[in-house]
Every structure is written in structure tokens, then in C-alpha cells.
């Protein structure tokens, strides 16, 4: 019997569960390891340092311009691995599905997950599915974990940040957060916003090939935006960051949306951008290398690491003033003031 929506029985572990796994999950995500359906994925690994990460994805709406929760959950974990310099190879994926989700929607999500995994060159090798009653989850929640191998001699950590290092951003900020917001009810603004969600591992690999260990720190500015990531760097390194407002790329429509809503693009989420702190002398080489990659075309050196004030990020404004950039507090809300 065919169903067009997820029922509680699809999560019961019985025949329907099996049907769902075979006809939907394996059909879309299958590969030689996942197809085994063992309790664990079993594989060989090379000698060396492994990176291991996990992240839960909840997003409303689950489909948005430029992607969906499937693509997001694959890219996010690939990116987390990449930010430690690891070359990602395997992912796991767990699904918590709300009863009533359309099976076609689920298939679309799995297809884009697979596509993102293919782009990144990784495989989804194990997973799990649970179904919960209506209202107990919002359509679908996905948790992915991933492992990757860190090339010999690479050590990327904010502790390696030194005064004088260059701060490089891989492209425009705010695209993901505004694309999501534009889909929510009640705000009523429109433009051709497109989320930047993308796997960054190939970009990172080419950067590492170019300058190797001259890359001191790297992070993807997701929730909390660029401001939060730079603050995290500054706090861990106990150094200051000085960035320049006119160097930070922001698309016109993102700027427009921010003006309308009273938002600051520095605090808006990105899903396909990275910010890296590199040895000063290597700055231009890294930048040139990033600009050759499609995901780094708009990369810019946006500032530098300074000794003081420790643990703080300051921004040189367009008119030459300076201000402190704090961590984000709570979500930004549309405001009149």
C-alpha cells in the first residue's frame, strides 16, 4: 500500500518503517555502506587525526529559496568539519519526523541532502528515523554527524591567532538569514533572496593546499553572524579584532531588507561563508586563492588582529569612527525604533 503522508506507524519499527527506509531513504541516499543496514556503519580509516562533529537542524520553513533543511543539514556538518581543516568523508543522519509530513516533501529533502553530499564528495553511511505525533515537532528535524581526516601538520585553532594576522571573509553576509526571514509570514517583503547554503570543503582544501598552516583559525559564521564569530575568536585568543565597515561585502537587497527591518547584517546567519584568520604575509595569497573558487569570488580582507582591546571586536565605520561590535543578544526583531 502506498501512502502520501508520514504516519505514526512509519516510525513503529514494523513493516511500514521498513518500507519507508527501503522505498524512500535508501532510494535517495543509498550507497554501499548505508545499503548494508547494519546497526553500525563499518569502514576503514587512514592513519592520522580525525575530526568528529554533530549538529541538529530545525528550520522554518523547511523549504526556502536556495535550499531546504536537507541541503542545510548536509552542508552544515561538512562545513563544521572543514573549519577544523578536516577533509570530510562520512556523515550520519537522524530524522525526527512529524506525523503528516508529505512523503514527496521528504523525498525532496533527501534528494537535496544527497546532492549536497555529492557536491561535497561525502557519503551518508548511517541514520535513524523516528516519527512523533502532530504538534510534537515542526515537520522534520534532522541531526547529522560527520567525520573527516585532518591532513598531516595542519593545526587550525583560534589559539594560534597572533597580532597582525589578516581577517578574511569569503563573501557577502546575511544571505541565508534574510532568505529564511523573507519566507516567514507577516513581514511581507520580497526580493530574489537566495540562501548561500553550500559545502565549503573544496574551498578550504584549496586554501590549505595554497598556504597550509599559515591558516591559523577558521569558522563559518552561522547563527549570530559575523559579529558573533569574530567575538568568539577575540575571546579565545584574548586579542582584539579590528575590521572595516566598507570592506565587508553585503548585497544590495540584503542591505535593503536590513534597513527595512532595522537589522544589522553583521548579526545575520550565513550557511556558505567562512571567516579565516591567516598569517599576515600569507593574506594576499589566501585571498587570491579564495577568489579563484566559485564560493570565494567575493572574498575580502576585512581587517586585522590587534593586541588591544583584548577580547573585543572594533569596527572602523565608513566615516572613520570606531565602535565596538558585541555578541548578538537574542534574535533580531523587526522594529520601529
Amino acid at each position: 500500500m502506498q501512502f502520501d503522508r508520514i504516519l505514526l506507524s512509519h516510525g513503529s519499527g514494523g513493516r511500514l518503517s521498513q518500507q519507508l527506509i527501503h522505498d524512500v531513504f535508501l532510494k535517495e541516499l543509498g550507497n554501499e555502506i548505508l545499503d548494508e543496514l547494519n546497526d553500525s556503519a563499518v569502514f576503514n580509516v587512514a592513519e592520522g587525526k580525525l575530526a568528529y562533529t554533530t549538529d541538529a537542524y530545525v528550520v522554518s520553513p523547511i523549504f526556502f529559496p536556495g535550499g531546504d533543511i536537507g541541503r542545510l543539514s548536509a552542508c552544515g556538518t561538512v562545513n563544521d568539519l572543514s573549519m577544523s581543516g578536516a577533509k570530510p568523508f562520512y556523515l550520519s543522519a537522524s530524522f525526527i519526523i512529524e506525523e503528516g509530513l508529505s512523503i514527496n516533501d521528504l523525498k525532496t529533502i533527501l534528494m537535496s541532502m544527497k546532492q549536497a553530499a555529492d557536491e561535497a564528495g561525502v557519503k551518508i553511511v548511517c541514520g535513524d528515523t523516528k516519527v512523533v505525533g502532530r504538534g510534537m515537532a515542526d515537520k522534520v528535524f534532522i541531526t547529522t554527524s560527520g567525520i573527516g581526516l585532518i591532513p598531516d601538520g595542519i593545526d587550525i585553532s583560534p589559539r594560534r591567532i597572533r597580532p597582525g594576522d589578516s581577517v578574511i571573509l569569503s563573501g557577502t553576509i546575511g544571505d541565508h538569514g534574510i532568505a529564511i526571514l523573507s519566507q516567514r509570514e507577516g513581514l511581507g517583503f520580497s526580493s530574489d533572496f537566495i540562501s548561500d547554503v553550500a559545502p565549503l570543503n573544496h574551498l578550504v582544501a584549496s586554501m590549505l593546499d595554497e598556504v597550509g598552516n599559515d591558516i591559523h583559525a577558521m569558522r563559518d559564521p552561522t547563527r549570530g553572524g559575523l559579529a558573533t564569530t569574530l567575538n568568539e575568536f577575540a575571546q579565545v585568543a584574548n586579542l582584539g579584532m579590528r575590521i572595516y565597515e566598507d570592506k565587508i561585502p553585503v548585497q544590495d537587497n540584503i542591505r535593503g531588507a536590513c534597513e527595512l527591518l532595522g537589522f544589522d547584517p553583521l548579526y545575520i546567519a550565513n550557511e556558505g561563508k567562512l571567516v579565516t584568520i591567516v598569517e599576515n604575509v600569507a593574506g594576499d595569497r589566501v585571498l587570491a586563492c579564495m577568489k579563484r573558487h566559485p564560493l570565494g569570488i567575493n572574498a575580502e580582507i576585512i581587517g586585522e588582529v590587534v593586541e588591544k582591546p583584548e577580547g573585543m571586536v572594533s569596527l572602523v565605520t565608513r566615516i572613520g569612527g570606531t565602535r565596538v561590535i558585541d555578541m548578538m543578544v537574542g534574535d533580531q526583531l523587526p522594529r520601529i525604533c
Binding site: L315, V316, T317, R318, I319, G320, G321, T322, R323
Partner: peptide, 9 residues
């Protein structure tokens, strides 16, 4: 005034 760093100028 804060956003543009005017006081410090």
C-alpha cells in the same frame, strides 16, 4: 551616533 562612531571623532 554610536553606530557610526561619531563621538570618538
Amino acid at each position: 551616533i554610536f553606530k557610526h562612531g561619531i563621538k570618538k571623532l
